[in-house]
Every structure is written in structure tokens, then in C-alpha cells.
């Protein structure tokens, strides 16, 4: 499978998943590459993102899959010359690892406190995320449901500065997937006094079930 590893930062983080798909389809054409197209009344270029990214989340580990009709050499430089600011291809490669083996995601949450971090907040948050039973409203196939997200949080680490706490976590990426915003939702629910004023989300890395970096 043909894949590209790319990052999405700066103004580009406000693009939706569909926007990003459209952007990449056009970028290929700008780079002079015609992708493999589906058959049918409205043929579309085959591009897919392994793990859709929420609007407003930064990432340095997005993986995209695509298909070509003919062998064409593409370099990250070819793509980067025709991409808008904030979207940058890091690697073009082939892989035989199926997307379903991408199971774990490393994310960071930069939690900003406008009036300083409350005393002991980092400790309380750390304890909360490691406690049993962490119920939040989560969108499931059956609609919004109270869900225990604790089993989806594999590992957490916190660092504390004057006006922010940086939470780094390994979370479940697929089946089930955990939106990192739900970590904030859990803090709001269980520790309302430690609720941050604003949170920046960033995807750091993707892993397989053995904890090895997924490509």
C-alpha cells in the first residue's frame, strides 16, 4: 500500500477531515500525479486517511493511503511544493501493514489556566485518569452513551508549569477510538475546580498493538 506520513499544524488544523481529503486529491494533481479513480457515474480519486483527525487538533503523525494507475515516483518535496502552509509531507513510502494494526495513539493535551494552575491539580488529574471507572458522554453507534473511557487510556504522564499542565497520554486509536477531548470532558466532570480554560490537542505518534511505531 502506498502511504504518506504528513503533519498538519498552524492554520491547517482548522480544516475538517473531508477538507483534508479534498486538499490532498488536488495537491496530487498539482504535483502532476493522476490518482487511481473509482468507476461509476461520479469517479473519485482514491485517497484515504488511516485515522480521521478532528477539527482543531494538530498532528505530526497523519498517515494517508492512495492508489496510482501507473508507477510514478513522488517525493515529499514534490508534494510540499504544492501544499498550503501547515500541511507538510514527511515521508513517502510503501507498507504492507494493514490499517487495522494501528491501535494506539500518543497525544498531548496542553491545558491552559488563565489564573494559574490550581494547587495540586496535576496530582488530582493524574490520580483521576488512573482510577477505575471514568464515565463520560461518548458518541457510539447507538448514539450518545455514558461510557467508561478508563480502559481506553493506556498510559499518562503529566508535567506542570505556572499557567499550564501538559498531559501526554497513550490512548486507544481504533475499536474503540477515544477522542482526546473526552479526557478534558472527564476532568470537567470529576474535577470541576481543575477544569482548564483552554486545551490544545496534538497527535504525537501512532503505534501498533505491540507498542511499536506504526507506519
Amino acid at each position: 500500500m502506498r502511504r504518506m506520513l504528513f503533519e498538519k499544524t498552524g492554520t491547517a488544523i482548522w480544516m475538517s477531515h473531508l477538507d483534508t481529503m479534498r486538499l490532498m486529491q488536488r495537491a496530487f494533481r498539482r504535483a502532476g500525479v493522476v490518482l487511481h479513480h473509482s468507476q461509476g457515474y461520479t469517479p473519485h480519486a482514491y485517497v484515504s486517511m488511516l485515522l480521521p483527525l478532528s477539527v482543531g487538533t494538530e498532528s505530526v503523525c497523519e498517515i494517508m493511503e492512495y492508489e496510482l494507475d501507473a508507477e510514478i515516483a513522488i517525493t515529499p518535496e514534490d508534494m510540499n511544493a504544492v501544499l498550503p502552509q501547515g500541511v507538510r509531507v514527511l515521508r513517502v513510502y510503501e507498507s504492507d501493514r494493514k490499517a487495522k494494526y494501528l491501535t494506539e495513539l500518543a497525544v498531548s493535551l496542553t491545558m491552559l489556566y488563565d489564573h494559574g494552575v490550581p494547587d495540586g491539580a496535576a496530582g488530582r488529574i493524574s490520580a483521576l485518569l488512573n482510577s477505575g471507572g471514568l464515565y463520560v458522554e461518548k458518541r457510539t453507534k447507538r448514539g450518545m452513551e455514558e461510557t467508561d473511557i478508563r480502559p481506553m487510556i493506556h498510559q499518562t504522564e503529566l508535567s506542570n508549569e505556572d499557567d499550564k499542565i501538559i498531559l501526554t497520554a497513550r490512548i486507544s486509536a481504533q475499536n474503540p477510538s477515544l477522542n482526546p477531548a473526552l479526557l478534558t470532558a472527564a476532568i470537567e466532570r470529576y474535577l470541576p475546580q481543575d477544569k482548564p480554560d483552554f486545551v490544545r490537542y496534538r497527535r504525537l505518534e501512532v503505534y501498533d498493538e505491540n507498542g511499536e511505531v506504526f507506519r
Binding site: 477538507d19 498539482r30 504544492v82
Partner: peptide, 24 residues
């Protein structure tokens, strides 16, 4: 980016309309 704007954007519909940064 202006930090106030950064905090507004997650609250509005289709924020990509408000940030520029497009190709060309």
C-alpha cells in the same frame, strides 16, 4: 495566531473559513 481567536475557533461552524493560509 492570536490566542483569543484560537479559543473562539473551536466554538464556531466551519472555522477553516476564518484563518486564511490557503494555497496561492
Amino acid at each position: 495566531m492570536n490566542e483569543t481567536l484560537e479559543r473562539i475557533l473551536p466554538k464556531v461552524q466551519k472555522p477553516a473559513r476564518y484563518v486564511g493560509g490557503e494555497y496561492n
